[in-house]
Write a protein that binds this DNA or RNA. Structure first.
Length: 468
RNA sequence: GGCGGCGUCGCCAAGUGGUAAGGCAGUGGUCUGCAAAAUCACUAUACAGCGGUUCGAUUCCGCUCGCCGCCUCCA
């Protein structure tokens, strides 16, 4: 079996072969840090986290870059998001950005999303962006006018290859207010001349200004990952124009293919409508965490394939939580039995169970190999869980080897690859001795039928009632 | 208007050219001091509709209906 990834560029699943053997270079569009991340961000970054985790599991050295957009980009109203946020919170733009970056990282940590290797900020790479724009001017792919610089779309005939659009089709229906100074309505801005009152602006060969939206990703991706990336990820809504423009400017500059595999994840919906900051129908991760556990949110998101939309509802996420608890219970049961399991092995079923574990592992891998099919993989976990429970119910003598193997497989698939917290390890380890003592006392009380006293004990235990 | 996607049991959600995983909810057993957990069994006329291709389609093609995304900042 080989890993297959759905490539937006070719509209089909392709076997994944990285450019450099044993190494994957991956870039994902990060958030604009002017307010708190919402569940849409959670879905996106959890999806890519799965990709990263699985690639690591497969043995690749993964170099994962995710940008932080801290240059504001203009709204319809002509306002800049960062500046708007700064005004709202009465902070300097960079204070605002600093604050939300920290909060974003906290949210991702809570959801058990592995941190990218590099989180470059757009404002820290103005020079690289200017250099890239200069190169495009030099090569004749861009033109400057009135202190701004535009990419000349007519010089790049394959513009539209990612999203399947033709420039001509777009022009007719274009509702965008066309800037008069553009030579072609589809030209996009690389550098914007700043008005004097614009707070965030930098010197450039073309006067004071700030970078256009698309150029930061090209500049930073290529700086850290080279001219050709293996994987570029992002939300579907960024396919056009953002990713299309990234391709144009990058490939125009280098003459090389920019990205080998384009990966786009689908949206979170609320009552069938996209959750987004602009629509205002979003739930920020922090609020969701007050209501649901982080692993529940993560699990809920993973029960749908990353290329499908997820309709967010209380009923759905609660059902997911119940299901996950079942997996956790099995895991806790395994770890509990593991403690007391004997080394000497009188049990007969070892061979059989080992074969069984192999089969489940195989099925799990097949699911993940097929474009990271986490819902199917989770289904395998449920099957495994049922099988193990049935086995533990039946066998009276279970060897340490068997339990260890089951435990490790469960841990590998659930915790390591899917990133699900299957039980709280630290709580158990620190309080271990005391909990054991309490359990012992409780059992003694039960044996002398002191029910009332015995029932007091579970109330003091922090978690894992199933230990009893 | 252009481009793309979706419509599977009450809910969530995989999947396949030969009538369909799993989870939640529900019902009934086992276990238990009660409960929880676990487990077993059960349950349902579930593949939007209409045509076409085919020996055979939920799976391929066409049309219709419904929903969604992008074309403008957006994960």
């Amino acid at each position: 079996m080989a890993l297959k990834i759905y490539n937006t560029l070719t509209r089909r699943k392709e076997e994944f072969i990285p450019l450099h053997q044993g190494e994957v270079r991956m870039y994902v569009c990060g958030p604009t840090v002017y307010s708190d991340a919402h569940l849409g961000h959670a879905k996106s970054y959890i999806s890519f986290d799965i990709i990263v985790r699985y690639l690591i599991y497969l043995g690749y050295r993964v170099k994962y870059v995710q940008n932080l957009t801290d240059v504001g980009h203009l709204l319809d109203t002509g306002e800049d998001r960062i500046l708007m946020g700064a005004k709202r919170e009465k902070l300097d733009p960079m204070e605002l950005v600093e604050n939300y970056i920290r909060r974003y990282f906290e949210d991702m940590d809570a959801l058990n999303v592995l941190a990218p290797n590099i989180s470059p900020r757009a404002t820290a790479h103005i020079l690289e962006q200017i250099e890239l724009i200069e190169l495009l001017l030099q090569k004749g792919y861009a033109y400057k006018i009135n202190g701004s610089v535009y990419f000349d779309i007519t010089k790049f005939p394959s513009y539209g290859k990612l999203s399947g659009r033709k420039i001509e089709d777009q022009v007719a229906g274009a509702r965008v207010e066309i800037r008069d100074e553009k030579q072609h309505p589809a030209d996009f801005v690389l550098w914007v001349k700043a008005t004097p009152e614009h707070i965030m602006q930098w010197n450039s060969p073309w006067g004071k200004g700030y970078p256009g939206w698309h150029i930061e990703c090209s500049a930073m991706a290529m700086k850290y990952l080279g001219e050709t990336l293996d994987i570029h990820g992002g939300g579907m809504e960024n396919m056009f124009p953002h990713h299309e423009c990234e391709i144009a400017q990058s490939e125009a500059a280098t003459g090389k293919q920019f990205v080998r595999y384009w990966v786009h994840n689908n949206m979170i919906l609320v009552n069938g409508v996209k959750m987004s900051k602009s629509l205002g129908n979003f739930t920020i991760i922090r609020d969701a965490l007050n209501k649901y556990s982080p692993e529940q949110i993560r699990f809920f998101i993973l029960t749908t394939h990353y290329r499908s939309p997820v309709d967010f509802s209380d009923a759905a996420i609660q059902g997911a939580g119940e299901g996950m608890r079942k997996l956790q219970t099995t895991f806790e049961r395994l770890s509990e039995i593991l403690r007391y399991a004997q080394n000497d092995n009188k049990e007969t079923g070892t061979l059989k169970i080992n074969k069984l574990l192999d089969e489940y592992k195989q099925k799990f891998m097949e699911a993940m190999d097929d474009d990271f099919n986490t819902p199917l993989a989770i289904g395998v976990l449920f099957d495994l869980s049922r099988e193990l429970n049935a086995y533990l119910d039946k066998e009276t003598q279970v060897s340490k080897q068997t339990i260890t193997a089951a435990y490790q497989l469960y841990d590998k698939l659930g915790s390591e690859i899917l990133g699900l917290t299957l039980y709280s390890k630290h709580t158990l380890m620190e309080a271990d001795k005391y909990i054991e003592l309490l359990i012992e006392i409780r059992n003694d009380l039960r044996s002398i039928k002191q029910w009332e006293l015995a029932d007091k004990i579970p109330n003091f235990l922090p978690s894992s009632p199933s230990l009893l």
